[in-house]
Design a binder for these strands. Structure first.
Length: 495
RNA sequence: GCCGCUAUCGUCUAGGGGUCAGGACAGAUGGUUCUCAGCCAUCAAACCGGGGUUCGAAUCCCCGUAGCGGUACCA
């Protein structure tokens, strides 16, 4: 049973034979962001769950803002996430199709030319606000005389096309939000074709949904107010309507809608790919923004999502993008990978930093990854966490130095003594292996009444520059005897 | 301004007339340990407010309030 009984009543519209067809319709005006990725994912999961088709439609009717680069970014992000599409369309290729429908609208008297200038519209809007009007455009060019038209044309004005809104209420059924009736007085005659001849979103979207036989339009609630407009256009054209499902917005930590404009590439999917997040983690994270299965499960494989995803379990309120949760999921998925796979994933980050090249021994690298163990939140973490394996050109962390090497001369003296002794002990070990080293060091600390942690931390800082990291014995062995014996004197000199 | 949507721990959410309001992330504490992470244990943390309906309301209804979205010749 769903959380909202209103929803189930509407599912009857979909008969057994109808194949589900859904679409993701981004406008190529920037990268794909977290919210867009979630819309894509919900659509894709819905299609997969119902054995239907997922269509990618590029809504690029805003030619001024659309770019090919952005289109490629979107493809790239989607592919990385594993969201593949069955069909693809680009609206700018379909201009003539829309023109046919506009013609039809004009001929049937459901649309008309509007010669208002942008300045004029600006004034109308300002006045409507002062008058506390519900709508701004008042339909003043609905009934122009031919003299008016001639005059406007003589002035060189290029018209837009506006749809005539009906004067009866429009019923909007939404699978998530339920049903409501829209008061026609709140609707104004929308521009459906710009003065430059390019059709607008509300027109092309609903035409394509019909043309492409889209059964379910799953999109963000920022489109909720567009829905009655699109329904009105479809009705005027005698087009079949899809079912609508408006999913709540993804918000930032102040509760505002995530957007490219306000959040920059902080919300770009590709950025997370570059930083070493796993697509599985991304998908798992994003799906839980607004959707839940029960009160137990947090981790879902893609197959499980396909099996379990359901619009009925999508909530109505917005959800905040919480990077901590993403990080948790990412480290979970990273830790599922075996050492070889983790090494592969981490390699580009090492190479990018110039730490590793084709001569570096794979075997050794895998051992480093193994030593790092479950400490990675993202793959790019490998760089700060392992840099010291590749170079002795690092700073000694000042806090660590103060705490473990000593703030006082007396303590420094002691540290110096310990490191000197350790150097000697390690020098005498010929078989440089964990067990041997461990027992030698424990023997030294225990016999000389030195705290294990003091000796180990002193050595750790000498070898790595920091006070934390993998098991120190692993580090010593991986660094190798020569390197270790070089770094200790260097540290002593630094004291 | 106008139109609309929403409201459970800090965050994601479960529950939908009777529950000690459950889980997860984040946080705190303790244990394990050479450190960190991890792991284990424990703790803290919520039904926006006010009215109804009812034996009983977080749950149903109404009214507020707040937040957000839209308000383009963007999508």
């Amino acid at each position: 049973m769903g959380k909202n009984s209103e929803r189930t009543e509407m599912n009857g519209t979909l008969s057994q034979n109808d194949q589900v067809r859904v679409r993701m319709a981004p406008s190529p005006t920037g990268y794909l962001h977290i919210g867009g990725a979630r819309t894509a994912l919900f659509n894709w999961l819905f299609a997969k769950h119902h054995n239907g088709k997922f269509i990618l439609r590029i809504d690029d009717t805003d030619t001024a803002r659309s770019t090919d680069e952005s289109m490629r970014e979107i493809y790239h992000a989607l592919k990385w996430l594993g969201i593949n599409w069955d069909e693809q369309y680009v609206q700018s290729d379909r201009k003539s199709i829309y023109e046919g429908y506009v013609e039809q609208l004009l001929e049937s008297g459901n649309a008309y030319h509007c010669y208002c200038t942008p300045e004029e519209l600006e004034e109308i809007r300002a006045q409507a606000r002062v008058d506390k009007q519900t709508r701004s455009y008042d339909g003043r060019h609905r009934h122009l005389t031919s003299e008016d038209v001639d005059r406007f044309i003589a002035e060189g004005r290029k018209p837009t096309v506006r749809i005539k809104m009906p004067d009866t209420p429009i019923r909007v059924d939404d699978l998530i939000l339920g049903s409501r009736n829209i008061d026609p007085d709140t609707l104004e005659d929308e521009v459906i074709v710009r003065s430059n001849g390019m059709p607008n979103y509300n027109l092309t979207s609903i035409i394509d949904d019909a043309e492409m036989q889209i059964t379910h339009v799953i999109r963000g609630t920022e489109h909720l107010n567009n829905t009655p407009k699109q329904i009105a256009i479809a009705n005027a054209l005698g087009l079949n309507l899809p079912q609508f499902a408006h999913i709540p917005l993804v918000l930032d930590d102040t509760g505002r809608k995530l957007s490219k404009r306000h959040h920059g590439d902080l919300v770009a999917v590709n950025r997370y790919r570059e930083e070493g997040y796993l697509p599985e983690a991304m998908l798992n994270f994003v799906v839980r923004l607004g959707w839940s299965y029960d009160d137990k499960q947090e981790i879902f494989s893609v197959d499980e999502l396909i099996e379990k995803f359901d619009l009925e379990r999508v909530g109505k309120s917005g959800s905040v993008f919480d990077i901590k949760k993403l990080e948790w999921l990412n480290s979970h998925y990273i830790n599922q990978l075996d050492v070889a796979a983790r090494t592969d994933a981490v390699m580009p980050f090492w190479e990018q930093e110039g730490l590793v090249d084709s001569n570096t021994k794979r075997d050794w690298l895998e051992k480093i990854v193994e030593a790092v163990g479950e400490r990675l939140t993202t793959f790019q973490d490998i760089v700060p966490q392992t840099r010291y394996f590749f170079t002795d050109d690092f700073e000694y962390d000042s806090k660590a130095v103060k705490k473990w090497w000593g703030g006082s001369d007396e303590k420094k003296q002691k540290t110096c003594e310990i490191l000197t002794n350790l150097q000697q002990i390690l020098e005498e070990i010929s078989a440089f292996e964990i067990e041997t080293i461990e027992s030698a060091i424990w023997k030294y600390t225990d016999e000389n009444d030195i705290k294990r942690v003091a000796a180990m931390q002193a050595l750790r800082i000498a070898l790595t520059g920091t006070s934390f990291g993998p098991s120190l014995f692993d580090i010593v062995v991986l660094l190798g005897k020569d390197e270790v014996l070089k770094r200790i004197p260097k540290a002593i000199a630094h004291l």
